[in-house]
């Protein structure tokens, strides 16, 4: 369980990243954070694995206040939180297998990882993760030989290999075309269902948020301005979150997917 208690974050340059955020996220939820760019979505997500550190309040992950964590505790926290990025963040010159195994680094001793001594279990786990996102045939391809969608699937496989309790995805489809975006979101949703991994995704496309989320949190200027199940959300809700009328480019579009 993740719980934000009066969490605020002020960046050194004075920008208010988060302002009195109070949110509770339960096991197995699929939460989508929406808001304009600069609304604090990224700061929200990155606070959970302490890539950024809130300046006040308490942030409970599994009943521990992670804001006080340092060194070893911080590493242990991060090993149970997987993260997916907008730009995939793969090592382009390394092959897919090595990139996926990087997900095990937090679980592997420094010496073992440097001499490439990943255990049999780790290696089969990495292969299994690649199979789950249907990209196992690219096992030994270099990451820069893959398309954007394939790279994002590899980065999902990397997170799966990490065996996390939580997955954070920061604008995972912003660099992809509509059909690939839906593919990536479907994988995230499937993993959320099958493995009961709590998943928090930043999106700025309204239609995608509506399609995949169980629950939507709306943010504006660092504050949570909406929090509720998808069933309670309508166009007015988004206009309220965005503070303006909905536009064409707030939609990703279904592309060639079938509607049913």
């Amino acid at each position: 369980m993740i719980e934000f208690k009066d969490v605020s974050l002020v960046y050194p340059n004075g920008t208010q990243g988060l302002k009195d955020v109070n949110v509770k996220i339960k096991e197995g939820e699929f939460v989508v954070i929406v808001g304009l760019s600069g609304a604090g979505k990224s700061t929200f997500i990155r606070s959970i694995n302490r890539i950024v550190t809130p300046t006040s309040g308490a942030l409970m992950v599994d009943d521990q206040d992670i804001l006080t964590f340092k060194g070893k505790d911080l590493r242990r926290l991060r090993t149970k939180i997987g993260m997916i990025f907008q730009n995939y963040n793969l090592v382009k010159r390394s092959n897919v297998m090595k990139n996926v195994l990087a997900g095990r680094l937090g679980h592997t001793g420094t010496f073992r990882s440097i001499v490439n001594l990943f255990s049999k279990e780790d290696r089969s786990l990495a292969y299994e993760s690649l199979r789950r996102v249907n990209i196992e045939e690219k096992l030994y391809s270099r990451a820069d030989e893959l398309s954007g969608g394939q790279q994002q699937r590899v980065s999902i496989a990397r997170v799966l290999t990490q065996k996390p309790t939580y997955i954070l995805a920061d604008e995972p489809v912003a660099s992809l075309d509509p059909p690939t975006s839906h593919q990536v979101m479907s994988y995230l949703k499937k993993i959320n269902r099958e493995d009961k991994i709590t998943t928090i995704v930043n999106l700025h496309f309204i239609d995608m948020a509506m399609e995949y989320a169980d629950r939507i949190i709306g943010m504006r200027a660092g504050e949570v301005v909406f929090d509720g199940p998808v069933s309670e959300v309508n166009d007015q809700t988004f206009e309220q979150i965005y503070g303006r009328a909905i536009r064409e480019d707030d939609m990703r579009g279904g592309a060639d997917r079938e509607e049913d």
Partner: peptide, 9 residues
């Protein structure tokens, strides 16, 4: 049981 990845050729 998980399967080991195929060896690199």
């Amino acid at each position: 049981e998980l399967q080991m990845p195929p060896k690199k050729k």
